[in-house]
Amino acid sequence: MNAFEYAAPTTKEQAVGLLADRWGDAEVLAGGTDLLSLMKDYLPTPKRVVNIKDIKELQGIKYSSATGLRLGALATIEELLSNAAVKKEYPALAQAAEGVSSPQIRNAGTIGGDLCQRPRCWYFRSGLGYFPKDDGGKDLIPTGQNEYHAILGNSGPAYFVHPSSLAPALIALDAKARIFGSAGWREVRVEEFFVTPNNDGDRETVLKSNEILGEIILPPAKGIRSATYEVRQKEALDWPLAAAAVALKMSGNTVQSARVVLGHVAPVPWRSQAAEQALGGKAIDENTASEAGSAAVNGARPLSKNGYKVQLARVAAKRALLQAAQGGA
């Protein structure tokens, strides 16, 4: 880890003022569960680290049945998990938070940090580059060790999967991200918050280097059934191999509208309109869930070693749908 200047502002205005005009000069520090390990591996080598944890305004979780849920970017994953309203009204989100382990990670890691965490791609983390290439300039990943890489949205040069477990649930629940910069607040749908990078210095979100993610707003979830299903090889200290979050607006027993979002399959959380359409007007049973699962992986193009993830994503979507249909409204 390089030596760096450390700043701990107490307001969002100060924080933004301390950030830099280009990526790499300064980094935002929240819980540090990701940033510190990145810095130890010299991935970012910032000159300044801006700790935002003391900005009170960006902390906490608030719920009202009229306006919905407000998640401060600095609220921890544990706060999210232990929030009764979240558990009751937004089960997809609570279930996603539950998967993040260990308890230590949930206690330190923040919601904002979960959404902004960098790819876990082992080429990237091993210092082989954001878009690793061989000596001849050919991408290494498509024919390399890609068992954990993307099966969708993977035409390159990005082949990693977005690591956030919370993102698919937030997108399924139609959340908005509020971003603070020198020009004040701006708002984007969480779905649009994530972008697939094309150039080496890019990042995985629409955030500019001198902006911070401030809060996440979810609309009320009345009448929505939601669930997250993650395919995890290990019970703890691991990321899902594939995941799906779904939110269903029901009319009686049939689906009026659905949102189906896959996680860990593409460089961004992957919303599948094909799956959503496959569900319209249908009751959820093993068959319709299965069909929607298959529709969710439409167009998947596995790399040399990750064909199995197509099956995992399909099953994750199917099981999330069955789980949502069984759960209460």
């Binding site: 082992w122 983390r125 091993s126 390399g144 090889q233 290990k234 019970e235 200290l237």
Partner: peptide, 29 residues
């Protein structure tokens, strides 16, 4: 169930030289 050293064929470099991708069982497993 979990352990395996993973090397990148082209560069000859290790890819899971850490406790994240060099997986071990936990108490729940």
């Amino acid at each position: 169930l979990f352990e395996e050293r993973v090397m990148d064929e082209v560069t000859g470099r290790p890819l899971n030289a850490n406790m994240e991708f060099y997986k071990l069982a936990g108490i729940g497993d």
